[in-house]
Design a protein around this nucleic acid. Structure first.
Length: 378
DNA sequence: AAAGTGACCAACCGCGAAGCC
DNA sequence: AGGCTTCGCGGTTGGTCACTT
């Protein structure tokens, strides 16, 4: 569908219109809502001078009529130079999210530390969208607290609730969501790819003009629809929760990384994958321009890393790395699978597979073997 | 063409933890 | 030790766009 990259999307005009712009309270007005370029510039300057801290002073000193909370959020989610703005989650990133969500639960900040360039908000939104899609595809309301109901025009086609606080689940082999046929997919160019034309030659070629082997399945055979149908499946859990395999983070998760953010993911508490990783000539690990070791684990540490990047260059770093991801819904890479046609994917599943939907969740998984290594910070 | 809908994204809110005095 | 402030996180909400009907 070629949606515009997040940052480029046109928002309710004139800056700061989406939500309430100004606090209702008296006294000094606190601006809310969407940020303007001018505000961003002020915030960036503050960070450049003071670092990603003292958020509250931004307002107290009169730099911006924004709360420190809002400033921090803006920095973390949008202005940090190491963010993958406009990049949809790749299949590998999705796998990471699934695996880590199964491990950690809804610890988005923690999970995001394994995904360079992704914020907790990114992960959270991704997960939420994914859960909603799953719920709709499965025709099963997800458990958990009531989801936001758009309730547009009182549509009877109310969307299923989204489980907002899911318990950690034991890993299970499940299909990558992009195995699930997605309506509305159309050919297009991923915003990242647009900037990285050479990647087209590296991608798994699609057969014909509109269908072909999904890059995900091509590179990761365990994710094909057939295996998915045969695999045990944690329906009752966090949707299509997880994978039995491990995560090839060492290389794949850096696809689409926006910069030399010195962000190697922490060592994951998973085994190395038994399946081949996507390999692209000329893109060795050394070519990723990554720090040799270390990883920021917490959001604050990430802030600091990003700030260090900001010091020499206040503009977001350009996309320098290719995007290997599989785009399904609206981004453009065709995801139609020969073996997983929209109408027969679930038909291929054992009929009793859905019986577990209403069963209590299995006991939580064992804790991770080791938490992410902490960086020295700032 | 218009309405409905899903997907995606940005940002706010509430709460708890951490730090400081 | 206790209160206050700041920060970080998770959940939620609202807006926009693209696609479908």
């Amino acid at each position: 569908m070629a949606r515009a990259p997040g940052g480029a999307r046109r928002r309710g005009g004139g800056g700061g219109s989406g939500r309430r712009d100004v606090a209702a309270g008296g006294g000094e007005a606190v601006r809310k809502g969407h940020w303007t370029a001018e505000e961003d510039a002020v915030l960036l300057e503050h960070v450049r001078v003071h670092g990603p801290r003292d958020w509250s002073s931004i307002r107290s000193k009169g730099f911006l009529p924004r709360t420190g909370k809002s400033c921090r959020l803006r920095w973390v989610n949008k202005l940090r130079p190491d963010l993958k703005t406009g990049c949809k989650f790749s299949a590998e990133e999705e796998r990471v999210v699934l695996e880590l969500q199964a491990q950690f639960g809804n610890k988005w900040a923690r999970i995001s530390t394994y995904l360079p360039g992704r914020t907790d908000n990114d992960v959270k939104n991704f997960w939420s969208t994914r859960q909603k899609r799953l719920a709709r595809l499965l025709g099963t309301p997800l458990r958990g607290r009531s989801s936001r109901s758009r309730n547009r025009s009182g549509s009877a086609k109310a969307q299923a609730p989204v489980a907002s606080s899911l318990e950690p689940r034991p890993a299970a082999v499940v299909p990558c969501l992009d195995q699930v046929p997605l309506e509305g997919s159309s050919s297009g160019v991923h915003p990242c790819r647009a900037a990285i034309p050479f990647m087209d030659a590296q991608r798994v070629p699609l057969e014909g003009s509109s269908s072909g082997v999904h890059p995900c399945s091509a590179g990761t055979p365990f994710m094909d629809a057939h295996n998915a149908a045969l695999a045990p499946y944690d329906w009752a859990g966090s949707g299509l929760v997880s994978f039995g395999g491990a995560l090839p983070l060492a290389s794949d998760s850096h696809a689409c990384s926006s910069s030399n953010a010195a962000a190697l993911p922490p060592l994951l508490p998973f085994d190395q994958p038994p399946y081949p990783l996507l390999d692209f000539p000329g893109l060795s690990a050394a070519g990723w321009n990554m720090a040799p070791a270390g990883f920021a684990n917490a959001g604050g540490a990430m802030d600091h890393l990003a700030y260090q990047e900001l010091l020499p260059v206040t503009q977001p770093a350009p996309m320098m790395l290719p995007f290997f991801g599989t785009e399904y819904p609206h981004g453009g890479v065709k995801t139609e699978l020969p073996d997983a046609a929209p109408d027969n994917f679930f038909d291929d599943l054992p009929p009793d597979m859905f019986d577990s939907l209403d069963q209590p969740p299995p006991p939580p998984p064992p804790p991770p073997l080791s938490p992410p290594a902490t960086s020295s910070g700032f």
